[in-house]
Design a protein around this nucleic acid. Structure first.
Lengths: 215, 215
DNA sequence: ACCTGAACACCGTTCAAGT
DNA sequence: ACCTGAACACCGTTCAAGT
């Protein structure tokens, strides 16, 4: 009941130069590990090593590895804000652009988004909810909103994924066997990628016509 | 040089009731394991167990686990044929429909497609090449073909993924926090899914206007 | 050519016990 | 409240050796 015991504990830990660990610190360290060595380098054991502790310790701050990863995803998306003004189309574009920018340095998190389905953090879910809401504002029939959302979401995520992958080193053999893949390979220039993203996105959103506002 | 040695070996193995293993058998067993217990249940060791051998044996038939998975993906897509007649739009639609049908029983393979990027099997690459070719037939400007392909591809894959996931069990708390996500949740009826897929796809393809044929 | 046993270097997670 | 050591039940991959 009394908090004296663990306050003493914290004090002792602090005295010997080690603050008590927090969930935020764990997530931050996991993010750094992700940046340095990719998702393969981020194991519970390597993370514990980076924090100077044992793997069992982490399970006090995080339920399991999946929650760790969705937590890092949530932190990565936290600073994104939903554009407050403009048409639904402008606001959805802004949201998509910000999402791409946030995920581009940590493309491995896109796979987390994929694997986890609906078991995501509150920040991620709030952004998804906002995007659905914006698309619904177009006045699209109710039963088409979810699929339009899906198309936009996976265009963004697929684009980030494609960007983050090295262009394949194809030999002349591949050129023969897969002529279209080699011919229409996207431009690798980053500035071109920006342009391609926005034009692709706007074409996608143009496929969602404005109808009269619902009810 | 002479084949006598290993023919004798095979004969011996056959005599004691065990055919010599083939790559095709390994891939088939991997596919069965995938169907039964998902991608988590398909490890090199569990696969070896299912084949009545040790894990080291598999490395004769397959370079590593990634090649095993792309091999299973290739087998899963092998029977898909590119629709021979019709407009590019009809043919692309047919290809997308067939791809969805092939992947729906093994949705875990979509993640393989994602992770492997360009290191895929010949069947998978040939299908991708065909889809790019069909989209290019629309006469879309060269530098927009790749992104239109990407949008179509990830609509298909994202759709399959969403279909294969159980609809989340949301409580009233989630309804409050994520009102749009809960309101526009897609219809779970499989027949509706078919319709939603084809209409979503055709809207996506409608976003690629027919221009005058190139050169 | 094809298979094997044994080993190496890892994993995620649990749990009783400590402070 | 927070951390620890030790253990359990796994992994993928390599390699010398067998037939």
């Amino acid at each position: 009941m009394s908090r004296t015991a663990f306050e003493k504990r914290s004090a002792a830990a602090r005295a010997k130069g080690r603050e008590t660990l927090s969930r935020a610190e764990v997530l931050a360290a996991a993010g750094r590990l992700l940046d340095e060595s990719g998702v393969a380098g981020l194991s519970m054991r390597s993370l514990a090593r980076a924090l100077g502790t044992g793997p069992a310790t982490l399970y006090w701050h995080v339920r399991d590895r999946d929650e760790l990863l969705t937590g890092v995803l949530d932190e990565t998306l936290r600073h994104i804000e939903i554009p407050p003004g403009g048409t639904w189309r402008e606001r959805a574009t802004g949201l998509a652009v910000a999402t791409r920018a946030a995920l581009l340095p940590r493309p491995a998190l896109v796979a987390v988004l994929w694997r986890q389905g609906w078991h995501l953090g509150p920040v991620t879910l709030a952004l998804a909810d906002a995007l659905v809401g914006l698309i619904a504002e177009s006045g699209l029939p109710e039963d088409e909103v979810a699929d339009a959302y899906l198309a936009v979401l996976w265009f963004v995520l697929g684009f980030v994924h494609a960007e983050s992958q090295a262009t394949p080193t194809t030999g002349p053999d591949a050129d023969d066997r897969y002529p279209h893949l080699t011919r229409y390979r996207p431009d690798t220039d980053p500035a071109a990628a920006d342009r391609r993203f926005t034009t692709g996105l706007s074409q996608l959103l143009a496929g969602i016509p404005d109808r009269k506002a619902p009810r």
